[in-house]
Design a protein around this nucleic acid. Structure first.
Lengths: 119, 119
DNA sequence: TGAAAGCATGAACAGTTGTTCATATGTTTG
DNA sequence: CAAACATATGAACAACTGTTCATGCTTTCA
């Protein structure tokens, strides 16, 4: 995963002050990785649709499958990913499992994305 | 790209009121697709790092390459993607090209992601 | 004008990802 | 307990993605 490229514009002109300013502001490698992983979750149509479906109400797996016109298996796989990322929570009621959004950040993040689109 | 799966929990119990509520709230297919595409951009470590590097200051391609310890080519490829998504703007000054964030939404979106991580 | 610096880009390759198919797990009901 | 329903999961396959390598483009300067 981590590799150090050899060729890295060594002899080229660098803008030192701006570079150090940027370097100071950079969070840890690990945090940036986690941040990318988080956005990767939002970066799939199916998962975005699922999150939007759960925007205002709980739904069971089969409901979502019907709404999105997809197989139960595909939805279940994606719900697992959403669950692992703490974007979705679930509640069992007999045979069926109801899913819902886990916190308000999900709303906020999607909202921000929408704002950017409508420029 | 679009395929209609045959098996879609037809005979199963549906929660009609919640389903219709969710259906009403769903934006158009196309918008959801674009939204996913946007988040996909943020869903890569390299691009997140680039965006963060440009968080407070302009930088040229080579500066970024040095800062992230990556090749100029790799950075340039990613900058093209960021450019196409209107997340980054550029300005030519002689031989060098300076890149910077395109709008404030970028800040906001990253901020939201960070908030979610620190739960 | 020719060389060098800075950047962009096309092809190719490895690694990753989402869906499907088959099957397993868990729950209720007769 | 057996059957049916709802969901979860593992393997496999196709499609996509990010980096590398080689090369092209643009600008400056001697």
């Amino acid at each position: 995963m981590a590799n150090q490229p050899i060729e890295t514009c060594e002899a080229q002109v660098v803008h030192k002050d701006q570079l150090s300013k940027a370097a100071e502001n950079m969070p840890d490698e690990e945090i940036l990785y986690d941040l990318a992983e988080l956005f990767k979750i939002f970066g799939d149509s199916t998962r975005i649709k699922i999150l939007y479906a759960l925007y205002e109400t709980e739904l069971c797996v089969c409901d979502i499958a019907q709404l999105l016109n997809m197989t139960q298996s595909a939805i279940s796989h994606q719900l697992r990913i959403l669950k692992q990322s703490k974007l979705v929570k679930y509640r069992r009621d007999g045979k069926t499992v109801f899913y819902g959004l886990d916190d308000d950040h999900v709303h906020a993040i999607i909202q921000m994305g929408m704002m950017h689109l409508s420029d």
